[in-house]
Design a binder for these strands. Sequence first.
DNA 1: GTAAATAGTTAACTATATAAACTATAAATA
DNA 2: TATTTATAGTTTATATAGTTAACTATTTAC
Lengths: 143, 143
Amino acid sequence: MSPEEFGKRMVELMPRLMRGIARHESNYLSKGKITLPQMWVLEHLSRRNNCPMNKLARSFGISRPAATGLMDRLIAQGLAKRADDPKDRRIVRVSITPKGKRIVSNIWEEKRRTFSAVFGKISENDRTAYLKILERVVETLAD
Amino acid sequence: MSPEEFGKRMVELMPRLMRGIARHESNYLSKGKITLPQMWVLEHLSRRNNCPMNKLARSFGISRPAATGLMDRLIAQGLAKRADDPKDRRIVRVSITPKGKRIVSNIWEEKRRTFSAVFGKISENDRTAYLKILERVVETLAD
DNA sequence: GTAAATAGTTAACTATATAAACTATAAATA
DNA sequence: TATTTATAGTTTATATAGTTAACTATTTAC
């Protein structure tokens, strides 16, 4: 199948897959505990801690004021904290708290369960083949 | 591979794929012409026209006031319009305009190009296999 | 024929985003 | 060294998108 034909059929398929996945949506999101952008930031901080605000904003492609507001709300919930950089006093570094880490690991667990459920209905061979191909695709993308 | 192991590896893979896809993001979104929710609603209306507000809100899992606001902004841009239902005068039906249709078809074309580009770097066999498996997954999901 | 349910909107609030203006600090340069 | 320029972060003002609660106008049910 040509890349063009493939693109055409993927555009039809993706919305249906997304809706299927959304039905297993995280309790943390659906119960209004935290929002999607807050979840993304927490996941980011759980991997790259002590992150300058500027870098955080660029990682998510948002403006610095937007990052300030997001962090304000995470900090108000006790999920993250600010710290001064002693080397460069302009910089504010943000990191995740233990409470934030607990939420991230719960959300990851829920996501794993979602993929297990959605892809659990096809054969083991199909799952393995699917993942192998997706890994090849991701490898062609610069990280 | 077990569904559990599969879930675990998908959770690691998806953010990288998403970032790769985001780099090809639509001009209509990145240039600030319309927003993501507006795009979703326009796509919906291009398939199911003359849609009651209530049904629209339920389709997207948002409240009715949120749907009212979304439609207000689409109508202000000339991309959609309201109409009374003569059978039931409580109902307001919304539909897409020719201008809205043009935007939707441009966005679809951009999405097709994105998938062509991202999956164009793997082999034709892999593309065909990938799509076949994804179709099996989607079939297990109620629409 | 009145009570209850449904459809849509408005109002008040929160979260997320933007751009512009501001403060503080560091780096570059005359 | 003194001054200009660049960088980091915040504040302010504005727009979009979502919520719940309260309201109007219909339709349906009893």
